[in-house]
């Protein structure tokens, strides 16, 4: 039963990893941008939520009402003001700029909040659980997992059933021709980054409730996000959810064998999948 429990907890943890990954997957899919600062933006969202909760006395979940649109706006402005200037045929300049951004965010957080670990206090809901058979499921992990499923479903729907999704796909296919359709590429990219960071805000707040964080906590989250995207297959959002779940289960099973193996087990499963299926388990089918 312990093993079943480990698998179930791993699946729920996978929901958090899918939220780490969904924003990465979105911007890579729309504009081939590899965002090295993604993990730090997750941590930045957690700190923003910390400030909102202490300043306004809101619970972290209520703080989402401010942090999610706030990060969305930051994403749009970041793309329009900085990242768009680096976009082109070459993938390297935007990658280097986001690397620099990562360093800046970490150090700014260090100056603003010190290196002390922080966490977000959500109250009783943090320790609440429901019994299913002999397994206790935490209410927060269930909320996180359900949020991940809803976010992925909503992004999928947006991509295939709305004008914005059509604009994203068209711009991803051929930027010049999309421009001829009256779509301003700079604006479309800004919207994609805004949406990506809005999802990131959710991930950051859930991270901060689950565990403590400090200004340097971003890089591990970036790796988990990348691993979930690549396990699932680039450009496939449901694949990203599956990738997050596989990574989560691998980590909890690893921790079950030996607590020291948690992170290692996740990386090993990632490497094995990369070796066997270099395009991920569910690559997007295209010509």
């Amino acid at each position: 039963m312990d093993w079943v429990n480990a698998v179930v907890q791993g699946v729920l943890l996978g929901g958090l990893y899918a939220l780490f990954a969904a924003g990465l997957s979105l911007i890579f899919g729309v504009m081939r941008l590899v965002n090295i600062a993604h993990g730090d933006l997750i941590v930045l969202s957690a700190y923003l939520a910390l400030t909102v909760t202490t300043a306004l006395g809101l619970s972290p979940l209520m703080a989402l009402m401010i942090v999610v649109p706030g990060m969305g706006l930051i994403g749009y402005l970041l793309q329009r003001a900085i990242l768009n200037r680096t976009m082109g045929e070459d993938l390297l300049p935007p990658l280097l700029v986001t690397f620099g951004l990562s360093v800046i965010i970490q150090n700014a957080l260090l100056m603003g909040y010190t290196a002390d670990p922080q966490n977000l206090q959500a109250g009783d809901i943090e320790i609440a659980s429901v019994e299913v058979g002999s397994i206790a499921l935490g209410v927060m992990p269930l909320i996180v997992f359900a949020t991940a499923v809803v976010v992925i479903a909503a992004l999928q729907w947006m991509f295939y059933h709305t004008a914005l999704g059509r604009a994203f796909r068209a711009t991803s296919d051929n930027q010049d021709i999309a421009q001829l359709m009256g779509l301003n590429r700079a604006h479309v990219f800004g919207l994609a980054m805004g949406l990506s960071l809005a999802v990131t805000a959710l991930a950051g707040v859930f991270l901060g409730i689950r565990t403590s964080f400090d200004p340097a906590a971003g890089s591990a989250r970036l790796i988990f996000g990348f691993e979930a995207v690549i396990i699932g297959g680039l450009g496939n959002l449901w694949g990203t959810l599956a990738g997050g779940v596989i990574l989560g289960v691998a980590q909890t099973l690893g921790a079950k064998i030996n607590p020291g193996y948690q992170i290692l087990a996740g990386h090993i499963v990632f490497l094995v999948i990369l070796a066997i299926r270099p395009r991920g388990l569910f690559p997007r089918i295209d010509g």
Binding site: R166, R169, A170, S172, D173
Partner: peptide, 11 residues
Amino acid sequence: VPEGRLLFPSL
């Protein structure tokens, strides 16, 4: 109407 048609393959 561009040379080579250049439709959006994802659409």
